[in-house]
Amino acid sequence: MTRRHRAGRSHPEPATTNATADSKSALPLFELRQVSHRFGHHLVLDRLNLQIYPGERVAIVGASGAGKSTLLRLLNGTLTPSEGDVWALGQNLGRLSGARLRRVQRQIGTIYQQFHLVDSLAVIHNVNAGQLGRWPIWRAVLSLLVPQQVETAAQALQRVGIPEKLYARTDQLSGGQQQRVAIARVLVQDPLVILADEPVASLDPERSHEVMALLCELVQEGGKTLVVTLHLEELARRYCDRIVGLKAGRIHFDGPADTITPEQMANLYRGQE
């Protein structure tokens, strides 16, 4: 019943255009309304309300098991919440399916802790995978034989600092390099918002800073929005302007990075078994 009510005042046009990309409009990019999620009997997210606006760089912090990854999966539409609604780019994700869901998802790029690349493909194909939302099928097929839009892919790799790996096989790259390939894929996808799920958790500290700096640069240059889950407070403070603390599936705090006190942070990890 509430659903119907909300559907009634849905936003007039699907936000798949770039109209809202630069300006910080009044409409949130993401909105969670009373979202809960369960895996089996286990409650992972508990009645969450959250809004994320264009241009923000939001860090989501919390202990492992706090529900950070689940939150990101709800945001990119790979998961539908058990209760409540997730709105992204003016659309209620839970009510979309098939082609319409995919059209929204094309505006959301995701980077993962484990990179999630296809190991047995050459780097160029993994980067070009970012094009798949746009390419007609014949072109996608052809590209596997004769790589298409090499220039775009090469530029993206140049941007992430590994131009020489264009034709290398992905499983022959180091972890840091693979994460750069994943970022290049998102660059090629050119979404409005980048979600990053623990993008540096598999990397050493130095590599972590490089990748985070790169991400922020890219987001700022393109006027994109960044939502990143992190478990290191330092990275969150340094690279993001807003920090959301999750604890046991609920929002523990949410505010500009400089207003979050060390006590609040410490509290976040306390009381966990």
Binding site: Y112, L117, V118, A129, A140, L144
Partner: peptide, 20 residues
């Protein structure tokens, strides 16, 4: 995981199959 990544960026099924 790589397949979910392709899916999350809105690739149609045929292309998930082809690239993943």
């Amino acid at each position: 995981r790589p397949l979910l990544a392709l899916k999350a960026q809105g690739s149609p099924g045929v292309l998930i199959w082809l690239y993943g």
